[in-house]
């Protein structure tokens, strides 16, 4: 039947050819004609190919064109055929302890916004990070102190310590999740290190801490973690630089919890100045005096003994 339509522009088949101009692909879904296949293979294949190309060309000429220096160009539509992906599917991420718990309990995951509303500022502020709301107590200029707090109670330091502790806890949990995931990925290795650890513990858990125990054949010496030190003959100037860096880090750590400038930094010795101005009775008395100077309580001498 193909012979007759050899010169025809239209291709007629029992099942119409599937043309995907996006990939420039034609799929022939018709069953192979066994007779012509066996008679002359070359001619059969050529006729099949001609039909396919003819159908493709016909579809190409129906497409919208765009002029170009080399003549009109057909604009291919997006491909229709679904191709399988080249790479295997990604493996599902190992669940964290919380995720496993939430899945078991049916707790839904809520996405927390990165910013939250600040009533005082009437603005959206970062929950953490730069100017984060979690540092509010540390950064505000005045902080409430509990009634029965110690004299050296520093609310800023308390808040900062609590925040640092939360961060440290989160990091610890993360590390545990990572090791748990690694153990789940390779249970054989995890079991091996576990057994080695247990063995090492039992070997030093005797009365002599393993010193006078019978040695088994092929038993290896227990080796701890080897400490590593800098070489002794390192350049001394490099060492001094590292020490200065360490010093400045120590200082900055101390400064972060204590806002007022160090006494040696400012020219004014605040403590001494307060003592001088208040005639040795301290800043509190000075403040009281300044506040109550015009009130009925008045007078310097009488103000002290109430």
């Amino acid at each position: 039947m193909q012979r007759n339509s050899n010169q025809s522009v239209t291709v007629e088949k029992e099942t119409p050819l599937e043309v995907d101009p996006g990939y420039l692909t034609v799929t022939d879904l018709n069953p192979v004609d066994e007779e012509s296949y066996n008679e002359n293979l070359e001619a059969h294949l050529q006729s099949l190919a001609r039909d396919g190309v003819q159908a493709l060309y016909a579809s190409l000429f129906t497409l919208p064109t765009r002029p170009s220096p080399d003549g009109p160009l057909a604009q291919l539509p997006p491909p229709k055929t679904q191709l399988p992906r080249a790479k295997p599917l990604p493996k599902p991420k190992p669940q964290t302890k919380w995720e496993a718990f939430a899945a078991a309990k049916g707790i839904q995951h809520k996405v927390r916004d990165r910013r939250e509303w600040d009533e005082e500022k009437q603005d959206w502020v970062n929950r953490w990070g730069r100017n984060g709301k979690n540092k509010q107590i540390e950064e505000q200029w005045i902080t409430e102190v509990p009634l029965n707090a110690d004299a050296d109670y520093d609310p800023r330091k308390v808040a900062r310590d609590a925040r640092k502790e939360r961060v440290a806890k989160n990091e610890k949990k993360h590390a545990q999740n990572v090791t748990r995931a690694a153990a789940a990925a390779n249970p054989r290795d995890a079991r091996k290190t576990d057994i080695e650890k247990t063995l090492a513990t039992t070997r030093i858990s005797t009365a002599s801490m393993g010193k006078f125990d019978k040695k088994l054949d092929g038993e290896k010496k227990i080796r701890g973690v080897k400490r590593k030190f800098d070489p002794t003959e390192k350049s001394v100037s490099d060492e001094a630089k590292a020490s200065v860096a360490l010093l400045s880090r120590l200082e900055s750590d101390a400064k972060k919890t204590r806002r007022e400038p160090q006494a040696e930094e400012s020219v004014l010795n605040t403590r001494k100045a307060v003592r001088f101005a208040s005639k040795g009775r301290g800043g509190l008395a000075l403040g009281r005096e300044a506040a109550g100077g015009r009130s009925s309580r008045g007078g310097r001498g009488r103000g002290g003994k109430r």
């Binding site: 030190f229 800098d230 070489p231 002794t232 390192k234 060492e239 020490s243 360490l246 010093l247 120590l250």
Partner: peptide, 17 residues
């Protein structure tokens, strides 16, 4: 004889400071 590690330097420096 060896140089101090960072933790050791920290201990020495805080004492001296």
């Amino acid at each position: 004889m060896r140089p101090l590690t960072e933790d050791e330097s920290k201990a020495v420096f805080t004492k001296l400071a």
